[in-house]
């Protein structure tokens, strides 16, 4: 900055007459005599430092004009083309994302519903299965019970029959005991005495058996 102020001071001191300043200005020279760029550069090289360029009022008109044109074009480009285009992309994306989120929410609701239905069906099925199992078990149990009862009845009947037969056989056998004893006694008596009275033997045996 120090150098700048020195240069500015120089410019002011040497540019005291207004004409000198104007002669030293780039634009003025070339405006008066349209010369090749190189020549303009050469003639102004020595005097360029006289005026600090940002404060050189002779360039203001050109800069303002071109700034107005450039900025006007930029503004129109931005407001009519670029910004609506970018804005529409962003809006479209936002709408898409919102739609997708809503769709996802809807699908999640459906999924939840489906899961609930599945749970309900599962519980129902479980209950049914339990019922069926219980039923089957009871029926099998009843069946088994019936069969066992039948077999038991059958068995007890057979046992009773067998017992009755045994009793009969025993009675029969017991009934025959006196007869065998009479025969044996008769045979013994016959062997011993040579003869036997069947009636007496029978009576004697009956007496012994009774006693």
């Amino acid at each position: 900055m120090a150098e700048t102020t020195i240069l500015l001071a120089q410019a002011e001191s040497s540019a005291a007459p207004a004409d000198a300043v104007q002669n030293g200005v780039v634009v003025q020279d070339s405006a008066a005599t349209p010369a090749p760029a190189g020549e303009v550069h050469a003639t102004t090289e020595a005097e360029e430092a006289l005026v600090f360029p940002p404060f050189d009022a002779t360039t203001f008109a050109s800069q303002l004009l071109w700034f107005a044109l450039a900025f006007g074009v930029l503004y129109v480009l931005m407001s009519r083309v670029a910004l609506p285009q970018i804005g529409s992309i962003i809006d479209k994306r936002k709408a898409r994302i919102d739609g997708d989120l809503k769709e996802a929410e809807r699908l999640r609701g459906e999924t939840d519903k489906a899961i609930a239905a599945y749970e309900a069906a599962l519980a129902e099925a479980r209950k049914n299965a339990h019922g069926i199992a219980e039923e089957t078990r009871t029926s099998i149990k009843a069946d088994l019970e019936g069969k066992r009862k039948g077999v038991e009845d059958d068995l007890s009947k057979k046992v009773a029959e067998a017992e009755a037969r045994i009793l009969k056989n025993k009675d029969e056998a017991l009934g025959r005991v006196s007869e065998i004893a009479e025969e044996t006694a008769a045979a013994l008596v016959t062997q011993l005495t040579g003869e036997a009275n069947a009636k007496d033997v029978a009576a004697a045996v009956a007496e012994v058996v009774k006693g």
């Binding site: 634009v27 008109a61 050109s62 800069q63 071109w66 700034f67 450039a70 930029l74």
Partner: peptide, 19 residues
């Protein structure tokens, strides 16, 4: 005086690049 200057050139370039 109106002229197309280096300043104007860079204004145009700036606008062109942005656009």
């Amino acid at each position: 005086n109106i002229a197309f200057t280096n300043s104007a050139l860079f204004m145009v370039l700036t606008v062109g690049l942005i656009g």
